[in-house]
């Protein structure tokens, strides 16, 4: 797949490339959001696009998130393929009606006659010292709404391949990029490639325990797996890549093999992605479990500003190693 030798790109550049390639291919694609043109967004993800595609296709909007999201819905329904840039994932709360009542339901409510082929790109991730309104990981909120697809790239490679698929998809897709990974590099092929929505990837094969890790939690899982390997424990890592649709089969197959699993996701733990995946495992692979399904999410607190506090709220490799060892020792976590 990833043939050697391969150049390395930052996640930020991979996103930029995906958009540029798709916009060259399809003139119906437009991009809109706050400071997306000359400014190229605060994270400089979109730098250079307006120079190539002009202000007619890279639209700087007023600070009106519901407004430009709604306009994107209408444009998508009538023949465009808009990419909406939502500067921070926290602003999802502002656009909920347009995203969840309009974009998500239009295809269904119209009996399949209308479609909303749009992409909403936004971000997630704490530990950037941005406090409670610029640090949330709200993908579970969106994943709860039928009609939306939700992608969570775990590196530059996934970011590019998933975004290109999302742009070509006939449904509204929300992509969460972890803003702490924008400068992280990963091998990205020169040649064009797409990663399908709804297909998980086994990032590391293992025997003793499975980690299902979304987005940047992949890095946590990889660090933990490396440490466990020193003790002879072999951990398998699954990156779901998209949580809607969710590649249940790959996850279940891994759990059936190892008998143990911990789900790691940066959303708040309660009522979130870890709960959903854990429940599906319990429903569909129960008789293969040799330990309770473990899960690690962000603490159920608003993200605090102080670095001393913020770092406590997210899963870490150390805590994951502890949880994995407890699982391997057969320590009953609950209900014993």
């Amino acid at each position: 797949m990833r043939g050697p030798p391969m150049r390395e790109l930052t996640l930020s550049k991979a996103v930029n490339e995906a958009i540029a390639e798709e916009m060259r291919r399809d003139p119906s694609i437009i991009l809109m959001g706050e400071d997306v043109a000359e400014a190229g967004t605060p994270f400089k993800v979109l730098s250079g696009l307006v120079e190539e595609f002009g202000p007619e296709r890279i639209l700087d909007t007023p600070i009106s998130e519901p407004g430009f999201t709604g306009i994107a819905v209408g444009a998508a329904m009538t023949g465009m393929r808009p990419i909406v840039d939502l500067m921070f994932g926290d602003f999802l709360f502002l656009v909920m009606d347009q995203l969840c009542n309009q974009a998500a339901k239009t295809h269904y409510m119209s009996g399949g006659k209308l479609s909303v082929p749009m992409v909403l790109r936004t971000n997630m991730g704490a530990t950037r010292r941005s406090a409670a309104q610029h640090s949330q990981s709200l993908h579970a909120l969106v994943a709860h709404i039928p009609g939306l697809k939700v992608a969570m790239p775990s590196s530059a490679y996934e970011a590019k391949g998933l975004l290109k698929s999302a742009i070509r998809d006939a449904d509204p897709v929300v992509i969460f990029e972890d803003k702490l990974m924008y400068q992280d590099k990963a091998p990205v092929p020169e040649e064009e490639y797409l990663l399908p929505l709804g297909k998980a990837e086994i990032l590391r094969e293992g025997r003793d325990i499975s980690f299902v890790a979304t987005s940047s939690m992949r890095q946590v899982a990889e660090a933990a797996a490396a440490r466990l390997a020193e003790d002879g424990v072999s951990a398998e890592i699954i990156d779901p890549r998209t949580i809607v649709p969710l590649d249940e089969e790959t996850i279940l197959a891994s759990v059936r093999k190892t008998g143990r699993v911990i789900v790691i996701d940066e959303g708040h733990q309660s009522f979130g992605v870890t709960a959903e995946i854990a429940a599906r495992i319990a429903e569909k692979a129960f008789y293969h479990l040799d330990a309770p399904v473990g899960r690690m999410g962000a603490m159920d607190v608003p993200i605090p500003f102080s670095p001393a506090l913020e770092d406590l709220t997210v899963p870490t490799p150390e805590r994951l190693v502890e949880r994995a060892m407890a699982s391997l020792r057969g320590e009953p976590v609950h209900g014993a």
Binding site: R57, I71, A75, A76, M77, T78, D97, Q98, Q102
Partner: peptide, 28 residues
Amino acid sequence: QANGNLGANAIVGGSAGIATGAGLTAKR
């Protein structure tokens, strides 16, 4: 859709974005 009716909307004011987006498409 065949007659250009993009749909009734049960959210008061909820279709303002859709109509404006249709205008954006027409212009683009």
